[in-house]
Design a protein around this nucleic acid. Structure first.
Lengths: 184, 184
DNA sequence: CCACACATGTAATATGTTACATGATTTA
DNA sequence: TAAATCATGTAACATATTACATGTGTGG
C-alpha cells in the first residue's frame, strides 16, 4: 500500500536540504514549493511514518520537547535519487477557468471578462511573490548549493505568469469585440 | 453525496452544445477539452445517472440500439448557468517536472537537461495539436456560436506552450553553465 | 492567563482512476 | 467471421482534503 511516490519524493527532497519537523515541512512546502506543489497534514504525517518504518528517515526526539526532528538517512538519499529519476507525472488537468471560458457562449461576454480580469490579477500577484522569493532564496545560507536549481523553478513560474498576462490582455480585447457584436 | 460539481459542469456544458452518448462524451472531452480538462468513464457514467435522476439531462433510447443519447433539459441549462457562475477552482498544483528541478542538486545537471528537453518537445507537440484544433473548430458547424469562446482557450494553450519553450531555452543555457562549473 | 503559533495525529469524506465484465455494431 | 470500435457500467483501489482531537510552548 505505497503512499504516493510523489509525496515521498517531495518529503525526502525537502529533508535532503535540512532536517525538519512535520509541521515545518508543511510550512516549507507551502511557502517555497507552493507555486507548483502542495501537501496537506493528512498526507505528510502518514507518509513520514511510512518513511520511518522503511528506514528512509529518522526521527530524533529533541530533549524535553514532544517535537520530533526528522532527518533523511543514507538509504533515504539513495531512494530519493531513484524517485527523482522516474518519469515526472503531471496530474490530469482540471482548469476551472478554461472550462468556463470554453462554455462562454452560455455564460456571456461580461462574465467571461470578469474571469479573465481575475486571472490577470492573480498572475500579477504571483509575479510579485516570486520576485520576493527570488531574493530570499539567493540569500538563504541553507539553500546555498540548491539555489541555482530552485531559481530555475522560480523563472518557470514568472514566465508562465507573464504569458497569462499577455494572453489575458488579448482575450479582453476579443471579448470586448464579442460584446459589441452581441449588442447589435 | 454530490458527485463533483466540476464534473457536472463539464458534462452539462458539453451536452449544451449537442446531445451525445456517454461514450461520445468521453471522446469529445478528451479530444476537445483535453489540454485543460479530463474525465474518466468512472466519473462520467455515475454523474450522468445522477444528472438524470435530478432531471437535468434526459436519456433517449435510440430505436433498437442499446445506446442512450443524453440531452440537456431546460432545468439542466439553468443549473449549468449556476455552475458556470461559481468561482473557478484550480486543483492543488503537483508539477512533477518542477519538483525534480527544485531538487536538481540531487539529480545533477545532465538529468535536469533531459527533463527540460522533454518538456520543450511536449510543448512543441501541444502547439502543433492546438494549431490543428483551431481550424477544425472554426469549420465545425455544430460549434458555430460557441467557436469564438473555444478559440480563446486554444489561444491560452498556445500562449502557455510558447512560454514553456522560451523558458526551456533559457534554462538549458543555465544548466549548461552549471554543468561546466561542476566540471572544474 | 489567554490567545496564538507549534506540533502530531486520526477519521470522515471527497474525488478520481484502473481494471474488469459485458455485450452490440461495424468493418475488413 | 474475426477484429476493432462503440457502449455501459461496477468494484477495487489510490489519493487527498477537511475537520476534528489533543496537547505544548510563548508572548502580550
Amino acid at each position: 500500500m505505497p503512499r504516493s511516490d510523489q509525496s515521498r519524493t517531495a518529503i525526502l527532497g525537502a529533508l535532503s536540504i535540512m532536517p525538519m519537523t512535520g509541521y515545518a515541512l508543511r510550512e516549507e512546502i507551502r511557502d517555497t514549493l507552493g507555486h507548483f506543489w502542495s501537501e496537506s497534514f493528512g498526507q505528510i504525517y502518514p507518509t513520514l511514518g511510512a518513511l520511518e518504518r522503511d528506514g528512509l528517515v529518522e526521527r530524533r526526539e529533541v530533549d524535553g520537547s514532544r517535537s520530533g526532528l526528522f532527518s533523511i538517512t543514507d538509504a533515504g538519499i539513495a531512494r530519493l535519487h531513484e524517485l527523482l529519476a522516474e518519469d515526472p507525472q503531471m496530474p490530469k488537468p482540471r482548469n476551472g477557468l478554461m472550462l468556463r471560458l470554453f462554455f462562454g457562449a452560455q455564460l456571456g461576454p461580461e462574465a467571461c471578462m470578469q474571469l479573465v480580469l481575475q486571472a490577470r490579477e492573480q498572475a500579477e500577484q504571483v509575479i510579485a511573490q516570486l520576485s520576493a522569493s527570488r531574493s530570499e532564496i539567493a540569500h538563504d545560507p541553507n539553500l546555498a548549493h540548491a539555489a541555482p536549481y530552485i531559481l530555475l523553478t522560480i523563472s518557470a513560474g514568472e514566465s508562465s505568469a507573464r504569458a497569462t498576462i499577455a494572453w489575458a490582455n488579448e482575450t479582453l480585447a476579443q471579448l470586448a469585440d464579442l460584446q459589441a457584436a452581441q449588442g447589435n
